[in-house]
């Protein structure tokens, strides 16, 4: 019985497709190429924004490592960020990325032998073509960077 149904379906499909093969293929492959272009364009844009975000976060982390609280460091030898460090980091990231990267947190990770400045954030990557095709307007990519404060003395007794 199933073989009978399957053969009827196949016959119907062949009849339905007859004469339309070239048209169907042309439409199908054009659509496929456009989807491929959308992927390449949009995810290329994501990659580009991610590279800008990574560079800006690295710079912000390294600059944040310069905004340490010198009073606390001089008295306790502890690395702590100054009050304005987060604002400065966000300002730098905004300047470099054109406002597309948001800094979420900036803190000092106290490890056994060293202190590491950790900055986390995310970049909002628009997907213009995929958004117009499938409604996928944007993806949010997390970004993270690390830096270590450099400190020393210029002269003896400092």
């Amino acid at each position: 019985m199933f073989t009978d149904v399957r053969s009827k379906v196949t016959a119907f499909r062949l009849k339905a497709e007859s004469g339309y093969t070239i048209t169907i293929q042309a439409v199908f492959y054009t659509f496929l190429l456009f989807i491929f272009l959308a992927f390449v364009f949009d995810f290329g844009l994501v990659g580009n924004l991610y590279s800008i975000a990574t560079a800006s976060m690295k710079v912000a982390a390294q600059d944040a490592a310069k905004n340490i609280d010198t009073t606390v460091f001089a008295t306790t030898q502890q690395i702590r960020l100054s009050n304005g460090a987060l604002g400065i980091a966000q300002q730098e990231v905004t300047n470099m990325s054109g406002g597309k990267v948001q800094v979420l947190s900036l803190y000092v990770s106290h490890l056994a032998t060293r202190d590491v400045i950790v900055i986390t954030g995310h970049v909002d990557c628009p997907l213009p073509l995929l958004g117009s095709l499938f409604g996928l307007k944007m993806i949010i990519v997390p970004v993270q960077a690390y830096a270590e404060p450099a400190y020393g003395i210029n002269q003896e007794g400092q």
């Binding site: 272009l37 390449v40 290329g44 990659g47 580009n48 590279s51 800006s56």
Partner: peptide
């Protein structure tokens, strides 16, 4: 469409290293 794909692939891939190079430089 094929030319556009080639164009986008080349341009996108070549745009990314500029920021890495500038930040490494600084």
């Amino acid at each position: 469409l094929i030319l556009a794909i080639a164009f986008v692939v080349v341009v996108r891939a070549s745009q990314m290293p500029a920021w890495s190079a500038a930040s490494d430089c600084a």
